[in-house]
Measured scan of single mutants.
Amino acid sequence: MTYKLILNGKTLKGETTTEAVDAATAEKVFKQYANDNGVDGEWTYDDATKTFTVTE
């Protein structure tokens, strides 16, 4: 399945996607991606759209 991440960081905004077997796996990938890019904030997940959002 394809999962999407929306980044609403103070210095980085954008979107990315990943292929993962489940939401938990996608979340690990996205949290590492956000961490690597210096984005740390509040996370939400919408199962209907398979979209994670992180907002600083």
Rank of each mutant, 00 (worst) to 15 (best):
M1H: 07
M1N: 13
M1V: 12
T2I: 11
T2M: 10
T2Y: 08
Y3K: 00
K4N: 07
K4R: 13
K4M: 08
K4A: 05
L5Q: 00
L5R: 00
I6R: 06
I6D: 03
I6S: 04
L7N: 02
N8G: 05
G9A: 09
K10H: 13
K10V: 10
K10T: 15
K10F: 09
T11H: 14
T11S: 10
L12P: 03
L12D: 06
G14C: 06
G14D: 13
G14E: 09
G14N: 09
G14F: 15
E15A: 07
E15K: 05
E15C: 05
T16F: 13
T16N: 09
T17Q: 12
T17E: 15
T17C: 06
T17N: 09
T18Q: 07
E19S: 14
E19C: 04
E19L: 12
V21I: 07
V21E: 14
D22R: 03
A23V: 11
A24G: 09
A24V: 10
A24P: 11
T25C: 05
T25Q: 13
A26I: 01
A26N: 00
A26R: 00
E27G: 12
E27C: 05
K28C: 05
V29K: 08
F30E: 00
F30R: 00
F30S: 00
K31P: 00
K31N: 04
Q32M: 07
Y33D: 02
Y33M: 06
Y33N: 02
Y33G: 01
Y33A: 03
Y33K: 03
A34G: 04
A34F: 03
A34D: 00
A34E: 01
N35T: 12
N35K: 12
D36E: 12
D36V: 11
D36T: 08
D36I: 09
N37P: 01
N37K: 14
G38T: 05
G38R: 08
V39K: 02
V39P: 02
V39C: 05
V39Y: 08
D40W: 08
D40S: 11
D40Q: 12
E42F: 10
E42C: 06
W43G: 00
W43S: 01
W43M: 05
Y45T: 01
Y45C: 01
Y45M: 02
Y45G: 00
Y45Q: 01
Y45P: 00
D46Y: 04
D47N: 07
D47F: 13
D47E: 15
D47A: 14
A48L: 15
A48E: 09
K50D: 02
K50Y: 13
K50F: 09
T51S: 05
T51Y: 03
T51E: 05
T51V: 10
F52I: 01
F52N: 00
F52K: 00
T53M: 09
T53L: 08
V54N: 02
V54C: 05
V54Y: 03
V54Q: 01
T55D: 08
E56Q: 07
E56R: 03
E56A: 07
